[in-house]
Structures are given as C-alpha cells and as structure tokens.
C-alpha cells in the first residue's frame, strides 16, 4: 500500500495524462486551501493547473455533486458536446455518484470516474482538542499523523483523530468507477453506526424533543449541509421557492431551523447514503447525520438492509411497492407513532 503522498502523485500524473490526451476536458479534485487542513474542491482544466493539486488526509469534501453544475454549464455553452469530466472518487463518494446517476442528475457517459483509496479523513477539531495550536503542516501514514504546529510537534494515532463518518466507513470498495488508481485502504473498525440513534430512541419523547430543539437551535441556516449533500440537489429547493409556501412558513417563528432540517431529512429519506457530509460541514457542529441514520435504521428494519447508492438501478424501498411490504401498523406495533 503506497503512502498517501504517493497516491497524490499518481493522481496528479493520471489527471495530466487524461487532460492531455484522454478525452477529458476537466478534472475535479482538490487544491490547497488557506491552511494545510482545508483543501478545497477544485476544477483543473490544464496540466499546468495541477501544480496546486492536493490529496491528503484532509481531502474530505466529496466531489461527485459538482458534476451536476459542471455538466449543465458545459451544455449551456453548447460547445464541447460530449466532453467528459474526470472526477476523483473516494469509496464513499462513489455511492454519491451512483445516486446522481440513478436520479438522472448526471449522465454516465459524461463522467470518467477514477477511484482512489482513502486512508480515513482527519478531523481538525479532534486534533485541536488534543492540544495542537496553529497547525502549520503535517506528515501522515496509515496509522499515525505527525502535526507540526506552533505548539510544537505532536504525533497522534490516526484512529483517534478520524472524522465520525470515517469511523463508520462503508469499506474500501467502489460502488462505481471507470478505473481504480489506488486500491481502497482497509477501513477502521468503528463499531455500531446506529449507537447514537439507539440512544435517542431510548429517550422519552419529551427528552428527545428537547435534545433536538437544543441542537437545532444553533442552526444559522447557512445551507452548508444542503449544499454538501449529494442527494440534496434540486434545481430549486422548496426553501428557496417563495411559491412553495414552505419558506414563508419556516421563517415565521423559532421553529424555523427545526422545520428545515425535518423537511430535509424527509426529502433525503431512502436516498441518503450516510456519507456524513452534512454533519462534517456544519459550522455549528449539529449532529445532523443522526436524523438521516434514524431513517436508515427504520428502513433497514422494515424493508431489509438497504444501502442507497450501492448501485444505480435498484429501486429504493420508499419509492417501490412490493407485495410483502410492511403495513403502516408496524410502526404502532413497535411502540412508536403515537
């Protein structure tokens, strides 16, 4: 297994090749951000631009969703018809691409998907919590990360500073790809991803309500969760559409943020691949993934295990009808729905 740096160089070289003579007009990857811990999604149109290309333990943002706008803009230009776009996919992002393909948001023939192994992405908050101040650079291996900071150098176990979403990794397989550049890396054992949901379920309705009121009260409606979510991709969101009547309603009182997140959770129910981006990008650290995981847990319980985005064809349980489908009464029998 090559070190992360080696993967980065392979990616850079392959992107160069494909841009030069691989029939790919643009590559989606990451470029260095303001700090060493915030690489950002970027478009690369020439080999020269690839100098900025970066792939490391902080290349957490998923890229597949950017294909929607990229392809749309390309179509509007009316030129370069049929040109392909290279997208680098970590295993978890491949589920996102499948969902976009399934919902016809992206045409398969316009995408060249290159799978890249992922060592598990790092959580800068956990690093800070470990006492690191003013992080300047870092060296990483699959098991350890050494931080160089004004507070001094510090070596931390990778497992201890992983993002929550990487602790419940779906594994190193790619749900969709055209080639795999660096094979997947073995994922970390994260334990039960529904533990948080089970804990919420054990609360009384009043406790649960106040838990969510408290969490959601921090929401500043920045829409980061919506923008990062691979399936929250409506041309026009109901919350941006004055004609829907939803927007005015959600602005009316202090229930605003609650309603936004409840409606969003319903809209992505059965489509959420549990990529964890919503919680990762939330500047207010609201555990939004718990809402989605509650839906996933219930869907699994009622309809059998289902992984959204595992393929681009299977009908999702909530938009399908089968003879043996559970009756609505099952919720009541289980003790819920009162």
């Amino acid at each position: 297994m090559p070190a992360v740096k080696e993967i980065q160089e392979k990616m850079r070289a392959r992107a160069g090749e494909l841009l030069r003579d691989g029939g790919v007009s643009m590559a989606l990857g990451w470029k260095r951000g303001e700090f060493c811990h915030d690489p950002e999604p970027a478009f690369f149109e020439s080999e020269a631009e690839l100098d900025n290309f970066v792939y490391d333990g902080f290349s957490s943002p998923l890229l597949s969703k950017y294909l929607i706008e990229t392809i749309r803009k390309d179509k509007q230009k009316g030129e370069g018809k049929g040109s392909k776009f290279l997208v680098f996919l970590k295993p978890c992002d491949s589920y996102g691409l499948n969902l976009l393909l399934k919902e016809h948001r992206v045409e398969r023939e316009r995408v060249y998907a290159v799978g890249v192994g992922c060592p598990g992405m790092l959580d800068v908050d956990k690093i800070r919590a470990a006492g690191v101040k003013n992080m300047r650079s870092f060296d990483e291996t699959e098991t350890e990360v050494t931080i160089h900071a004004s507070s001094g150098d510090k070596t931390l176990a990778r497992r201890d500073i992983l993002l929550e979403k990487c602790l419940v990794c779906k594994g190193p397989e790619f749900a969709v790809q055209d080639e795999v550049l660096a094979p997947g890396l073995p994922s970390f054992e994260g334990g039960d991803r529904f533990a948080g949901v089970t804990e919420l379920e054990s609360m009384s309705p009043e406790e649960r309500f106040s838990f969510w009121r408290n969490e959601l009260s921090r929401c500043i409606r920045c829409n980061a969760c919506r923008n990062a979510c691979p399936v929250c991709s409506c041309n026009k969101c109901v919350f941006d559409n004055p004609q829907s009547g939803v927007q005015a309603k959600s602005n009316a009182d202090s229930f605003e943020e609650n309603m936004f997140h409840i409606v969003r959770a319903f809209h992505v129910a059965g489509r959420c691949s549990d990529c964890g981006e919503c919680s990762r990008v939330c500047p207010q650290k609201i555990p939004l993934h718990l809402l989605n995981r509650k839906f996933i847990k219930d869907i699994n319980a009622f309809y059998g295990a289902f992984q959204a985005g595992a393929d681009a064809e299977a009908r999702a349980p909530l938009t399908n009808y089968e003879f043996g489908d559970v009756e609505p009464g099952a919720v009541v029998k289980r003790g819920g729905g009162a």
Partner: peptide, 21 residues
C-alpha cells in the same frame, strides 16, 4: 417543468403508469 429535477421518483411511485419523462 422549471422545478423538475428529472429524478424519476414520481414515475416510480405512480401506480397507473401515467408519468413518463
């Protein structure tokens, strides 16, 4: 139409086969 994402969800749930894209 301007609001439609083209996602086919409605087509899948329509019990009468009334929706096409």
């Amino acid at each position: 139409e301007p609001l439609c994402n083209g996602c086919s969800a409605c087509e899948l749930v329509c019990p009468y086969g009334a929706i096409t894209y």
